Computed example of a mutant assay.
Amino acid sequence: MLRIILFLATNLAVILVASITLRLLGVEPYLNANGLNMNSLLIFCFVFGMAGSLVSLFISKWMAKKSTGTQVIDTPRNDTERWLLDTVAELAQQAGIKMPEVGIFPAQQSNAFATGWNKNDALVAVSAGLLNRMRPEEVRAVLAHEIGHVANGDMVTLALIQGVLNTFVMFFARVVAQVVDSFLRRDDSGGLGFMGYFAVVIVAEIVFGLIASVIVAWFSRFREYRADAAGATLAGSGAMINALARLKAETQMPDQMPDTLTAFAITTGQSRKIMERLFASHPPLDDRIRALKESAYRQ
C-alpha cells in the first residue's frame, strides 16, 4: 500500500510541476485543427519527460528510505554501525565527495544501494543480510562500489538520460499518431477520432518506450563496470572480486529491492536469457568479475 501511495504522490507531483511550467512558458496546445504544432509539442514532451525524471531524482532519498525501510545511522548504537560510518567517511574522503547519509535496510539478501540528487547529498545503504554474511573487507568493497556510483554522478546522469528519452518517446508517439490520422483522413471526414488518436499514441509509446528501456539498461550496465572499477581502486581489486563472488553465490535468494531502486543496487541477480540481458540494469556477475580480473592483470 505504501508503494502505491508513493507512486501516486510522485505522479501527481510530476503533473503539477509540468502543468505550472507549461503555463509559465505560455505554451500553446500542441494539437489543433491544423494538425500538430511541432514547437509546442516538443516543449510539452520535454517538460513532461524531464519533470518525471527530475522529480523522482529530487525525492529519491526520501523514496528510498520509505520503500526499503532504511534506518539512517545518526548516532551509532554498536560497533558495527560505528565501523560502517567510519568506513563510508574514509571512502568518501578518498573519492572527493561529502559524507553521505548511511543507513541499514532490513533485507536478508546481501545488497546495497546509493541514491541522491547530487554527489554531495547522497544516501548509501546496506542490507542487514550483507552485514551479517560478508567479511569486513567485502563489505568495504561493496561500500566503495556505491561510493563510486555517487562520485561518478550516476544518479543524475541516469535521470537526465531517462528524461531525454522520455521526451523523444512522447514526441515521436504523437507524430506517428498524427501521420496515421492524416493517412486515414479524407477531406474533413474519417481519421482516427479522439479515442483512436490516443490509442495509437499509447501503442506507439509502448513500442518506443521499449526501445528507450534498452538504451537506459545499456547505460546502467556500463556504469556498473565503472562503479566496480571505482570500488577496486578504493578498496582493492581482490576485495571487490571476492564481494561480487559472494553476491553471485546468493543470486538464488529472492530480491527484496523495490523496482524503483533495482538500477541503483549493487546486484539484481543473474540474467541468462537474451531478452532478460537486453533489459537488465546490471551485467551478469561473471562478466563483472572477469572485467575486474582483466583490469588487475593489465596493471
Rank of each mutant, 00 (worst) to 15 (best):
P283W: 08
F58T: 00
K293Y: 13
V150G: 09
N242I: 06
A128H: 05
A263R: 04
F222A: 12
L36P: 00
D259K: 15
V88P: 02
F44K: 01
R135A: 13
L84I: 03
V180I: 14
M99R: 09
G196M: 09
N118D: 06
L16D: 08
F113D: 00
G35D: 05
R221N: 05
R226Q: 14
Q270K: 12
D286W: 06
I5V: 13
E276L: 10
W62V: 09
D187E: 09
K119W: 07
G163P: 00
F222C: 07
F105V: 06
A280P: 07
G103Y: 00
V124A: 05
E294K: 12
R298M: 14
W117K: 03
I147R: 06
L84V: 02
A92E: 08
L22K: 11
N118I: 00
Y225H: 12
A263P: 00
A296H: 11
T233K: 14
L278T: 08
M155Q: 09
E224S: 02
G52R: 05
A232C: 04
L6T: 12
Q109N: 08
R77W: 13
T87H: 02
P258C: 08
Q299T: 14
Q299M: 15
R272I: 14
R185N: 11
A263V: 05
V214K: 04
E276H: 11
M275R: 13
A95H: 06
W83D: 11
I215Y: 09
R221A: 13
Y197E: 12
A263T: 05
I4A: 15
R272D: 14
A239Y: 10
G209V: 03
L41F: 00
I206Q: 15
A212W: 02
Q252G: 14
M275P: 10
A245D: 04
F172I: 12
E250C: 04
N111T: 01
P258Q: 07
N242T: 10
Q162W: 07
I147T: 07
Q252C: 02
R290H: 15
S182Y: 09
A263S: 10
V142Y: 01
V156S: 01
F264N: 10
P258F: 05
V214E: 04
A173L: 01
D259P: 10
I73D: 09
G236M: 02
A64F: 00
G209A: 01
H145C: 05
L285E: 03
T68G: 05
N152Q: 15
A151V: 07
Q71W: 11
K119E: 03
K119Q: 11
Q256A: 15
I20M: 13
I202Y: 13
